[in-house]
């Protein structure tokens, strides 16, 4: 008898700190259970560069630049279930704190007017993705199916959430795992 087919999961960190990915690794011994059930597609854990057809896509981080949009669209296109993981994906989080300033002012302040700045100039290398005027939560850019809050969500919350999803249950966090901070 062949082994049951594994669920393909892709993950990405957009404008985030990788804290949510670290939290995913924090599920400790459940990692063994997880790899029994899932196979990772595009993810910082696999170094696969582009997303193939997946059941589940986990997105950490908000959308702050052009590359984030490409990645997010790719995920939406290839993942049947797209999940916003953590504060930044859900509400923009820390990167979105720049939304109260004009992008023009932000860039000039950092690259031109900062005290001690020599050789001032806003970087124009085509390798660098251009910044958006505002940082957006991912649900403002694509349709999102589930939201897993927390900054980051605890390993326990991530495991609870994924267990539900993999078992075909609508994910529902118990009160003790529901946190925005």
């Amino acid at each position: 008898m062949s082994a049951p087919e594994k669920t393909r999961v892709a993950t990405a960190s957009l404008a985030g700190c990788f804290g949510c990915h670290m939290s995913l690794l924090d599920i400790d011994e459940h990692l063994f259970e997880l790899v029994e059930k899932v196979e990772f597609d595009r993810s910082p854990l696999t170094d696969i560069k582009h997303c193939g057809a997946c059941e589940i896509g986990l997105i950490e981080g908000g959308v702050c630049n052009a590359e984030n949009i490409h990645v997010l669209r790719e995920f939406r296109q290839h993942c049947k279930i797209l999940v916003a993981v953590g504060a930044c994906a859900i509400n923009g989080g820390l990167p979105a704190q720049r939304n109260y300033f004009k992008l023009d002012d932000c860039l000039r302040q950092v690259y031109q007017y900062r005290i001690g700045m020599t050789d001032a100039g806003i970087p124009d290398d085509p390798e660098l993705p251009l910044l958006l005027e505002r940082v957006h939560p991912i649900h403002e850019i694509v349709r999102v199916d589930y939201f897993l809050p927390g900054c980051p969500p605890s390993g326990e919350a991530i495991w609870s959430f994924l267990s539900d999803l993999l078992a075909g249950r609508t994910p529902r966090l118990p009160y003790s795992l529901m946190h925005f901070d």
Binding site: A66, I69, P126, L130, L131, E133
Partner: peptide
């Protein structure tokens, strides 16, 4: 308009390369 949100950055960097634009139809980079 997502592409319009890149306008400030385009202006400040003076970039006009393909990656400086978001083409709604062309998903992959």
């Amino acid at each position: 308009d997502l592409d319009a949100e890149l306008e400030t950055a385009r202006r400040l960097t003076g970039r006009a390369d393909p990656a400086a634009y978001l083409n709604g139809n062309n998903e992959a980079r």
